[in-house]
């Protein structure tokens, strides 16, 4: 493109900027229920805490065990989310997810792994309760749960995949210490949040 053409495009872009419109971030544009599911663990900090705790816990495990652990987390998330989509009310499950994040954070901070089977069962219970609470709380907002549920699983997979890849790539002593510190922070935040919710608004 010639210089004159570029200048014209730049001028046109500048002229468009003069249109007095109101900018609403995440306004009326509906991105669909699948995308709402993908974004759920990112836009809901408490959900992110649970997924991050599970991801850090998985990243500390020996590499050969990872596929089965990650698979269990994803399948459990799918089942928990699907259960919530049927509108079965289980009000204690969000607390199970919260307690799971607390325990996972402590396990990461202590870098202590229980027996392999126990770890898979624990991760599956936490993931299922997270999947349930992440879906049940959104049922009023979503129109098509059948799209939301796989979206949520995809969102969890993205976070798990990125965090575990990061931990496998950067495994020097000090980075492992950093992961343990993050684990202790997750446990601390979860504990404080639980207490604040128990107390209620003051």
């Amino acid at each position: 493109m010639r210089a004159g053409g570029l200048a014209c495009v730049a001028g046109l872009a500048a002229a468009l900027c003069l249109v007095p419109t109101v900018a609403f971030a995440h306004g009326t544009l509906a991105a669909g229920d699948f995308y709402a599911g993908v974004l759920q663990p990112v836009t809901h900090p408490e959900s992110l805490l649970v997924v991050l705790a599970l991801a850090l816990l998985a990243g500390q495990q020996p590499e050969p065990n990872l596929p089965s652990l990650l698979g269990a987390i994803l399948v459990a998330t799918l089942l928990g989310s699907a259960l919530a989509a049927t509108r079965v009310a289980l009000p204690s499950l969000p607390w199970v997810a919260r307690a799971g994040a607390l325990i996972a954070g402590i396990l990461v901070a202590a870098r202590w792994a229980p027996h392999w089977i126990a770890l898979v069962v624990f991760a599956a219970i936490v993931a299922a309760s997270h999947g349930y609470s992440a879906t049940f709380g959104e049922l009023e907002e979503i129109e098509r749960p059948l799209l939301y549920v796989p979206g949520l699983v995809a969102g969890v997979l993205l976070i798990l995949g990125n965090v575990v890849s990061l931990m496998l790539r950067f495994d020097a002593f000090w980075t492992q210490v950093a992961y343990r510190i993050v684990g202790s922070w997750i446990a601390t935040i979860t504990l404080l949040v639980s207490a604040l919710e128990l107390r209620g608004p003051s």
Binding site: P45, E46, L49, W185, T188, I189, L192, V193, L196, E197, R199, G200, P201, S202
Partner: peptide, 13 residues
């Protein structure tokens, strides 16, 4: 108690 518990706790920690 009136602010977002997670955000507040995360900032605090």
């Amino acid at each position: 108690g009136q602010v977002g518990a997670v955000e507040y706790s995360a900032g605090f920690v």
